[in-house]
Nucleic acid binder design. Structure first.
Lengths: 319, 319
DNA sequence: TTGAAAGCGGTACCAG
DNA sequence: CTGGTACCGCTTTCAA
């Protein structure tokens, strides 16, 4: 027996006032209300269990105070952490986040974008979107996180500097043959960071393996890499590093004794691998904060905002 | 220069028809429209880039076709997997999911519930909610996942049978001193499953340690447990098992040689621990499917629906 | 200080 | 087959 929802009319009637007054009380404005009338209204609200209808409010106001958030995969720890941080950040500013996953599929991504726009989101946050999402006729602010997009504001970690930082750390441990595990095309910066660190130290370029950003991908890459006998490996994502670790264990290699490992990302999972991974940590909270801020403040700039990373030393590098 | 959104009025005017006709075309009903008129309208929609306003539609229809989803922590892999599955399942049925995290805090949880109701969600999915969420005056269907709640429909894995299955497997490997890592109060079933398996095999109860459902909690529990020298450990969650694994590695114990481990949950992370974890897998997809189905079909029953688990044999048990 | 009423965008009934 | 229009719940201007 789902009782009819209580509307503002019911409250007005119960309190013996007009609907306008109820509105003034609920929103604490824009007109003043006599304290005594106010109390009557509040009492009515409590008595009836009235809950304002945000849908109607949104229609009238033209804004939902809702952000749409699309990640390639909610099951990826990095994206989960990012989503969590964005949710928290948005909530703190009175926004709600409609979070959904594109399953790494461009078509699904476009369908989700359309769906979110239909629901009148006040802004769109695209985490690591595909190459070329359909953003025509989008009249709300959009921000890309962890990836640049033409004509769209974006926020991202310092991929190049971060990767260089990680590789330099490996070099400081005395490594001279440092392999790289990196994703497919379209992610040049971490690779460039690795290359730069090696060049600066006048070291030859170690082996490079391209594989998907997944545990499976890292495992496969690790096995391939082992044949080149590197003394250290820089993995461009946590997931890949975890796969590399497995390949190393299976081969009976000691980490960091035989092969040292450093990863890029720094999700919580890396603290509990064996051995714990030394990582270049993405500034997840800062990325979330900046993304939300830009959206709310309607940042016009299409310049990518780059947020610095930091090195977290654990066991896998030899520290 | 955010151009004004195109409304149904603009389309009607452009196509030279009434707004009603536009509505009939967009919704393919409830009245028929002459094919030629239809084409004019579709052309107008395309030309103007019209996108229906779901907010207005929801107001008129009284339903948003949106579910609210609250998890204790979006960063927890199990909840992330569950959320992902629910999102996918709901999308397949034309619903969108408003996903948010309660940060494991009852107050936040209640605030989020209120927030979601305010936004007129068509149903509420509470994943592993706290003891006693405030569900008064909730006029939409609610379903609890992975936890029973008074007077609320719920869906959950077979905790007891699953735990028993895991422990029996350990017993079949010849273990006779099997420790248990379990959460604090309020989760009696996995413990009972462990107890039942031991009793059935006429084995003495091994040591029990209660710790938070986290990697840290598991680590701590593992260290405590080691002092009792068990030959096997059943961890009631993946996260705890991962912590246990670290404690074991630090102590120089071989897994599964010195101590075997089996965990409950079976998130993807367990496939890549060292050694890979044998797990009792929660039927995440089935849980999601049933939760969404019950919500949509307005399941009245308050009986908890129990979905069976299955054992995934990997290395940590000695298989 | 309060009330009446217009209108946000869309739906669907009633007439034609 | 199509047009006109009342109404969903709420905000806010205008008038009282």
């Amino acid at each position: 027996m789902p009782k009819d929802p209580v509307t503002r009319n019911d409250v007005a009637e119960y309190a013996g006032v007009s609907t306008a007054v109820v509105s003034y009380v609920v929103n604490e404005g824009p007109r003043k209300v006599a304290p005594e009338t106010r109390d009557r209204v509040l009492e009515a609200i409590r008595a009836l269990g009235y809950r304002p209808n945000a849908t109607a409010r949104a229609l009238r106001m033209g804004t939902t105070r809702t952000f749409g958030l699309i990640t390639p995969d909610g099951g990826n720890p990095l994206f989960a952490e990012l989503a969590k941080a964005i949710d928290r950040e948005a909530a703190a500013r009175g926004y709600v986040v409609l979070q959904t996953s594109a399953d790494g599929d461009p078509e699904t991504e476009n369908a989700k974008i359309a769906e979110l726009l239909t629901r009148q989101v006040s802004g769109l946050i695209l985490v690591a979107p595909t190459e070329d999402p359909d953003l025509r006729d989008v009249e709300v602010p959009v921000i890309a996180v962890n990836r640049r997009l033409p004509a769209v504001s974006s926020v991202r970690p310092a991929y190049l500097d971060g990767a260089r930082l990680g590789v330099e750390h490996l070099i400081s441990h005395g490594h001279r043959r440092i392999g790289l595990v990196i994703g497919g095309a379209g992610h040049p910066e971490r690779e460039l960071g690795w290359r730069t660190a090696l060049a600066t130290a006048a070291l030859p370029e170690g082996p490079v393996v391209r594989a998907p950003f997944s545990r499976e991908g890292g495992y496969w890459a690790g096995r391939v890499l082992l044949r080149h006998e590197p003394t250290a490996i820089f993995a461009s994502s946590d997931l890949q590093a975890i796969g590399v670790l497995r390949a190393l264990h299976e081969a009976g290699a000691d980490v960091p004794g035989d092969v040292a490992v450093v990863a890029f990302d720094g999700t919580p999972e890396t603290e509990y691998t064996w051995p714990p991974l030394t990582v270049v940590r993405q500034p997840v909270e800062a990325l979330a904060r900046e993304a939300v801020r830009r959206l709310i403040e309607g940042e016009e700039s299409v310049e990518a905002l780059t947020v610095p990373t930091d090195l977290v030393r654990r066991r896998s590098c030899g520290c």
